[in-house]
Design a protein around this nucleic acid. Structure first.
Length: 718
DNA sequence: AGCACGCCGACT
DNA sequence: GTCGGCGTGCTC
């Protein structure tokens, strides 16, 4: 992987020219290059290492460096590297009152290092306070945060905000329990189903650092398999970290770890535990009393001691992408950790992302796959069905069920629960042309037209009514519901199968498990409950809507969601059947039928390489009002290989809609440019964008000027 | 972001 | 003279 240089304060070598000029200037001004710490009224200093290097906790990019403070004698003992401190920070001449320097406000920071002398020429202000003697920021975590900040053109302080939970005094006062001794290495268990599975566990248990991309067989064993990998790592005397997409997956791995290792050897880090509990668990990890961690994306930074394994489940799930600046992805953070800590790496899922395929292709990781024989034994039978041939049965017709789907459901319901996956939630359907399926758009603002029960068409953005719609593409006058929400699908299916209970699982109401009795379980992707004994069948409806999204990842995403549902169905040998309503010739549909997500990802990867798309090349998105964007692009000193695509106008945010970071404020016309660099130049691209952004902010572009959003690895490239 | 410094015009 | 407009630059 690309190794980024993480030189601590305000980098020297490799800095762009204008930064070097700044550095030269400040050196010229510095008359005393290495000053003994002087404070304003010579308060008593710590006798040894009287200088504290502090990371000031402000996310602003041009402050992304360390500041030196004097350590007063009375704080000497507590002011150790890694502790939280408070310092005065502010511009201008400070007033001196009672022999203490004041001015600026008190702000939080982390003490990074104690030094004998400072390379700052002016007089040092003193540390105002050591918040607590608990060292929370060790050198490994600091190094990781530095790498992540560099990788994502963000500031160290922003990353630390994600990595170190807020302090909680009560949690800090409680001592953490004594660590348990390492367990015995586990038996391979169901890892034996994979060609290199047992060898992977043995390598971990022996203290080695194997790296693998693991295509998991369908079914519920994955959590136990992850637990065994953790146990093997613990047996070697090292720690392990597991990151999964959501709370339900955390509970599964948690249960598997408890079953294998008992209590007390692992911690659970999730966002929905309260702040005190969360900090207590985090501290137990940081203090070394717990050696293994499972959690959701925030756990990717968990300060596990002597890390032997990082594991990530289902990296295609977009909840692995952190929404807060600088929006790092758990997979990339764990890759940086594996490189930095030289630890084992396990990237697993039922499906396979293009990024995972690339790790194998580049030789960085080795594949762990089952034989075709094992796949055939574990996977359900998949049948495709076009949606033109609607069932003759009246009720099934109303529910938009093609004949084959209806038959699969009816047959499945004789043996157990049947899962019905519908692409999107919500009751109000979006409308599309019945003939060519072009989405129906408002002729005034291009917003989506929505149908109300029996009422007129209405624009979802501007609210105007549309009474005489016809398709601008093919001229048809007929509309159909583009996607029907889970609730309405449930109602329609309830009428089609009157004797069968219907349950729904979606965003607001996620079911964890359902019993093995016959029932229809309607679910949106990602919310599928696990059925006891597996589903007898699954229907994957409205497949065309999943495949047809105008997104680079549409195919991969559709396949991942279908496989996630189909993996909960009984194997073919036990009668498990999946009917997918989609064009049978589409590539992801064929990959589902053959149950070959890895082959699909490899082919996608080849295409991305040809087209120069990520992850083969690296991209960044810059979005801003047109003039600000043009100005930014003029000022940024991109690496010579960089290629700027666009700018193109961004869709206007609809009034009253939630605005995502980097999206224009409602009603404003912004533009977006994509910047692309070839493999290996990602670090240079990030550094250039960061420098330009920092220069902008220092010039006051932050307050008076227009905002400019920079995002590395933008998730939504048309 | 704040906040102080300083350079320049207007006013008691 | 000196008050205060805001443009500019720095924060250990």
């Amino acid at each position: 992987m690309s190794s980024e240089n993480g030189s601590g304060s305000g980098g020297g070598e490799g800095a762009p020219p204008e930064q070097l000029a700044l550095i030269r200037d400040s050196v010229r001004k510095a008359k005393v290059p290495r000053a003994k710490p002087r404070t304003w009224r010579g308060a008593a200093l710590a006798p040894h290492l009287p200088v504290a290097r502090v990371l000031v906790d402000k996310g602003v990019l041009h402050l992304d460096r360390y500041f030196d403070y004097a350590v007063p004698a009375e704080l000497d003992a507590d002011a150790q590297p890694g502790v939280r401190v408070r310092v005065r920070f502010g511009a201008g001449r400070h007033r001196v009152r009672d022999g203490r320097r004041e001015g600026g406000g008190l702000i939080d920071g982390f003490l990074v290092e104690r030094l004998a002398e400072s390379d700052y020429s002016g007089p040092l202000a003193a540390l105002a306070q050591v918040v607590s003697p608990e060292p929370v920021l060790g050198p490994e975590l600091l190094g990781l945060a530095r790498s992540v900040a560099d990788r994502y053109a963000g500031s160290l302080a922003d990353v630390l905000q994600l990595a170190v939970p807020p302090r909680n005094a009560r949690a800090e006062q409680q001592p953490s329990p004594a660590p348990l001794p390492p367990p015995q290495p586990p038996a391979p268990g169901s890892w034996a189903r994979y060609e290199r599975g047992a060898a992977f566990l043995e390598a971990l248990a022996s203290g080695a650092a194997p790296r693998a991309v693991w295509n998991a067989l369908p079914g519920p064993q994955w959590s136990e398999e992850i637990a065994r990998a953790v146990a093997a790592t613990l047996a070697s005397g090292r720690g392990a970290l597991v990151v999964v997409p959501d709370g339900r997956a955390v509970s599964r791995v948690d249960a598997a770890l408890t079953a294998l290792l008992g209590d007390g050897r692992h911690a659970v880090l999730t966002a929905d535990a309260g702040p005190e509990k969360r900090y207590r668990e985090w501290l137990a990890v940081r203090r070394g009393s717990v050696r293994a961690v499972v959690g959701t994306r925030a756990a990717m930074f968990a300060p596990v001691r002597d890390l032997g394994l990082v594991a990530l489940w289902d990296d295609g799930d977009d909840s692995h992408s952190e929404p807060h600046a600088p929006q790092p992805h758990a997979r990339e953070v764990l890759l940086l950790r594996a490189a930095q800590d030289r630890c084992g790496f396990l990237l697993g899922g039922w499906s396979c992302t293009v990024e995972a395929a690339q790790l194998v292709e580049s030789g960085w990781a080795r594949p762990i796959v089952a034989t075709r024989e094992e796949v055939r034994t574990a996977a359900p039978l998949v049948r495709t069905v076009g949606d033109s041939d609607l069932a003759r049965d009246e009720a099934a017709r109303a529910a938009r069920l093609p004949t084959l789907a209806w038959q699969v459901a009816r047959e499945g319901l004789r043996h157990g629960p049947v899962l019905v996956q519908v692409p999107r939630r919500g009751y109000v359907p979006r409308m599309a042309c019945a003939q060519c399926r072009e989405p129906a758009r408002c002729r005034h603002c291009s917003g989506p037209l929505e149908g109300r029960d029996g009422g007129a068409l209405r624009c979802g953005w501007c609210g105007r009514e549309e009474s005489a719609w016809h398709c601008p593409d093919c001229g048809s006058f007929r509309l159909r519901a583009q996607v029907v929400g889970a609730r309405r699908t449930a109602e329609e299916l309830g009428r089609a199968f009157p004797a069968v209970p219907v349950r729904t699982s979606g965003r607001e109401h996620v079911l964890d498990t359902v019993p093995g009795a016959p029932a229809l379980v309607v679910s949106t992707p990602g919310a599928e409950p696990v059925a006891e004994g597996g589903y007898a069948a699954a229907l994957l409806l409205d497949g065309w809507a999943m495949v047809g999204r105008p997104d680079l990842r549409a195919g991969e995403d559709a396949l991942r969601r279908w496989i996630a549902a189909a993996a909960l169905v009984r194997p073919q040998s036990a009668g498990g059947t999946v009917a997918v309503v989609a064009e049978a010739t589409a590539r992801p549909v064929q990959a589902l039928v053959r149950w070959d997500p890895v082959g699909h990802a490899v082919r996608e990867l080849g295409e991305r390489a040809e087209l120069g798309f990520p992850p083969v090349s690296r991209m960044a998105a810059v979005s801003a009002p047109p003039e600000a964007l043009a100005e930014f692009l003029r000022s940024v000193e991109l690496p010579p290989e960089a290629e700027v695509l666009g700018p193109v106008p961004l869709p206007v945010t609809a009034p009253g809609r939630p605005r995502r970071t980097g999206a224009p404020p409602p009603g404003e016309q912004w533009e977006r440019a994509l910047v692309r660099v070839p493999p290996g130049r990602g670090a240079a691209l990030a550094a250039a964008l960061k420098a330009a952004q920092a220069a902008r902010m220092a010039r006051g572009g932050g307050n008076g000027g227009e905002p400019v959003w920079v995002r590395i690895d933008p998730p939504d490239i048309g």
